[in-house]
Design a binder for these strands. Structure first.
Lengths: 321, 321
DNA sequence: GTGAAAGCGCTAACAC
DNA sequence: GTGTTAGCGCTTTCAC
């Protein structure tokens, strides 16, 4: 059953396609009588305006996109869902794209860019070169959890400050030997957390440990911990909760008593008793959608920057209280 | 900076728009020399074909959609991500839509239907009437985790059988008094789980408990448990992990010793030691994308049905082993 | 208030 | 091999 077009509705209602368009979109320039007739015809034909035709004529997509790196873990899902919720509130549909492991990630992002009125791009998804290229086309953009690119809006969550607080807390427990699991090179978030740790240690006259490069998933954390636990430090700071939970499992297996902290405050962290840092992930996504909406309506003169607050969540994994 | 059109590329390369189209889409009917010239012109202009124009001309969107009810919890996120991964593999973009709490959910789904070549619709999102209406337009559809609708593909996960196994396991622990938290009326999944519990109890000459209606989130589970724990049964079967984890928290608070089970095997379940049932959520989404792809290419004569296997995951929350 | 007609940017017949 | 041209379905002037 082919979808009905505006022509068929027009014919059935005995009017022109222009009138159908006006009637259905609530234009003032139509008698209520004609409008009713058109509505009836449209209903009978189950008419829904073809989106491509409409977009082409209007010159806009009424859709926004979000690009994120990974399919794994609750973190990105939360951001995406916050984004969707806000975008839907503005009447925009949402296109999602996960890039990691796709050899053609840049192409996929370019293609996506052609389907939307605005795009949110998260860290670890595609390089700054691609971001700059797309920004140059004039497409409204907002960067999430990644370093700013000239002229583009950026929203991040606080890393350094809270990492320092976290470190202070661990120092308060009396720990003096630390390990950091995560690769500062791989992500600005991780870099910020490591920097906060280093700064706080330095403030106490302690040297920062060499970071132990480690993927941001549970299994990577567990494996990295297996080695580390042969000669365990007093405290292990994971770059995120999944890593920390992996360490937690390894420590349980090895019956090792070591303080562990994470980052993100996943639901699982609560049940593992993991000391961690809560991030407003949903709000991160929602703010992105809102900024994009504003930028599409009226580009602000200057690119905006925002750092959302994060909060230390102390549980039992960092030691007795 | 306005996006370049095919006309500008054509002019710059000194060819017709048809040649540009052919050259860029890899048609055989173009000299390598012209192709190179066109490519160069396109690159200089940062040309990306306008998606609406292309869709309109091709009569397809090269995009699929997925509709799910809620923004909360890892369950839906997993399904969506499985869907996205598979759809991207087929060259389809993915549009997502969360319906719950939106008064205009049906309209949003209709609108989405007009943007895609195929649509996956999950349980609890919109009613069967909307599904039937959209199915009638001929749009390829696949239903996820919900009761079948005439003529439409459906994929579910096994509930009854595994719920019975779970119940047998609890009976094996010696428990004879049970409570079920969840509303069978609200979801076919919950209904199936309750039915499996009832059947297994009946097989042992036991009456099924009245289900305790309860939302599918942690807080609902916790609140429902608060009442229940005044006169606790030996075992509490939660309709999903979030509910069960809520019960778990309530039981900890009340220092109540009661067996608890969930459903979904969230990451948190592992750390709470929750006995639960693992569902192939990612595969659920991926299968949906695959079926949609197949149905768009060539509609199968009969609607397909599939029930994906689920697996009992025994941990400590159901008692000592 | 309503209709005719000109695009929006692209693909694909059809000519040459 | 390449160009011309007719749509794809819709919105929106411009006439009447």
């Amino acid at each position: 059953m082919k979808a009905a077009t505006i022509y068929e509705v027009a014919q059935r209602a005995g009017v022109s396609i222009a009138t159908v368009s006006r009637a259905l979109r609530g234009s003032e320039l139509v008698t209520e009588a004609t409008r009713a007739r058109v509505r009836a015809a449209a209903a009978e034909l189950r008419f829904t305006p073809n989106r491509s035709g409409r977009s082409l004529a209007e010159g806009r997509h009424a859709a926004n996109g979000i690009v994120f790196p990974e399919l794994v873990g609750p973190y990105y899902a939360e951001v995406v869902l916050g984004y969707e919720e806000a975008a839907a509130g503005f009447g925009s549909s949402v296109l999602i794209l996960a890039t990691l492991r796709r050899p053609d990630a840049a192409d996929a992002v370019r293609e996506l860019a052609g389907r939307v009125d605005g795009l949110a791009i998260m860290g670890q998804s595609v390089g700054d070169d691609v971001v700059e290229e797309i920004a140059a086309t004039g497409l409204p953009l907002v960067l999430l959890a990644r370093d700013p690119v000239s002229g583009v809006d950026t929203i991040r969550t606080r890393n350094e400050g809270t990492a320092a607080s976290l470190t202070e807390h661990l120092l308060g427990h009396g720990y003096r030997s630390f390990a950091f699991l995560g690769d500062p090179e791989a992500s600005p978030d991780v870099a910020g957390r490591y920097a906060g740790l280093s700064a706080a240690l330095a403030a106490h006259g302690l040297d920062a440990p060499q970071p132990v490069p480690c993927g941001l998933d549970l299994e990577s954390g567990r494996k990295a911990a297996l080695k580390l636990l042969r000669d365990p430090p007093e405290a292990i700071v994971g770059a995120n909760d999944e890593v920390a939970l992996g360490v937690h499992l390894a420590a349980l297996d090895a019956s090792a008593a070591v303080a562990i902290t994470g980052w993100d405050d996943l639901l699982a962290a609560r049940f593992a008793g993991l000391t961690t840092v809560a991030q407003p992930m949903r709000e991160l996504g929602a703010t992105a959608a809102r900024w994009l909406h504003e930028r599409i309506a009226a580009p602000p003169p200057k690119p905006r920057r925002r750092v959302l607050p994060t909060q230390l969540v102390v549980r039992s994994s960092c030691g007795e209280h």
